[in-house]
């Protein structure tokens, strides 16, 4: 295409012209809208699917019912896996938050060599391919007899949740004005008072976000949980996995809807807390 021709082509398209002065042309607008649809729609189909009356994964469903919710809440198998997941998730959230917040503090406040290496180490569980992490942990857990134990699940998930907590806390601490500590001290506050009256309120939103991320990460994790599962201890995502691969069990549609709703709500909690704080 020659230069003139393409200039003419560009001039002939109102969308491109309109995009020029800061606004967004209709061409770009529709591309973005389509992208948004691709991002949201596929997951949204689980919600109508969960109200299906049929026995198969037929979508869209022909008739509607609440039978899969009933199946979910009355099945011992599903309820036990839900309970397992929530328990493991809470334990993971507590340990990962404690360890991650401490680590972020150490990285932020202490000056020592090799800090960059430690920081990379904290992020490594995100970068190393998921399947390699799963197989590696499974390998040593077989020897240490941690497979199918609560401790095994909690430690494995804590390792994977740490990067999230450390990242959130690092961002939170980066915005922490340390002259406030000095100001408190100059006004006669002890270190302990400063910590509880100044530091804790300032970092609380970051800690809460870290806690929530760690909980959701554990609640959602499948790959490691698939390897560590035993018939006695299965997390909800593992049960969901098995309900597609082993048995065609549409109860998964109800489980999926509940998971999507629950994770979205839980993740919105820190947002609301922050908003409340900023508008007292």
């Amino acid at each position: 295409m020659t230069e003139q021709a393409s200039t003419a082509a560009a001039a002939g398209r109102p969308g491109l012209r309109a995009g020029r002065d800061g606004g967004v042309g209709w061409g770009l607008r529709s591309v973005v809208a389509l992208t948004g649809l691709v991002l949201i729609a596929p997951t949204a189909v689980v919600i109508p699917m969960s109200f299906s009356a049929g026995d198969t994964f037929q979508f869209p469903p022909e008739d509607w019912s609440l039978r899969w919710y009933q199946a979910f809440f009355s099945s011992e198998k599903w309820m036990r896996s839900l309970l397992t997941s929530v328990q493991i998730g809470l334990l993971v959230a507590v340990t990962a938050t404690v360890l991650g917040v401490a680590a972020a503090f150490g990285l932020n406040r202490a000056g020592f060599r090799g800090r960059g290496a430690i920081r990379s180490l904290m992020m490594a569980p995100l970068i190393v391919p998921g399947i390699v992490v799963a197989v590696a942990i499974y390998g040593v857990f077989l020897r240490w007899q941690l497979n199918g134990t609560a401790i095994g699940f909690v430690t494995a998930h804590t390792v994977m949740a740490l990067p999230f907590v450390v990242t959130v806390m690092t961002t939170s601490l980066a915005g922490y004005d340390r002259t406030l500590d000095t100001a408190a001290a100059s006004l006669g506050a002890t270190q302990v008072t400063t910590f509880f009256r100044i530091t804790v309120p300032l970092i609380a939103p970051g800690v809460l976000s870290g806690f929530v991320f760690a909980f959701v990460m554990s609640l959602d994790e499948v790959v490691v949980a698939l390897f560590l599962q035993t018939p006695d201890i299965q997390t909800l995502p593992v049960q969901m996995y098995n309900s597609i691969t082993l048995e065609i069990d549409p109860t998964i549609a109800a489980a999926s809807s509940l998971m999507v709703t629950a994770t979205t709500l839980v993740l919105l909690v820190p947002q609301f807390v922050r908003r409340k704080r900023s508008t007292p």
Partner: peptide, 12 residues
């Protein structure tokens, strides 16, 4: 959104 829910959605 839940990884399993997402994969299940694509499965359907």
């Amino acid at each position: 959104t839940s990884m399993m829910a997402r994969n299940f959605a694509w499965y359907m």
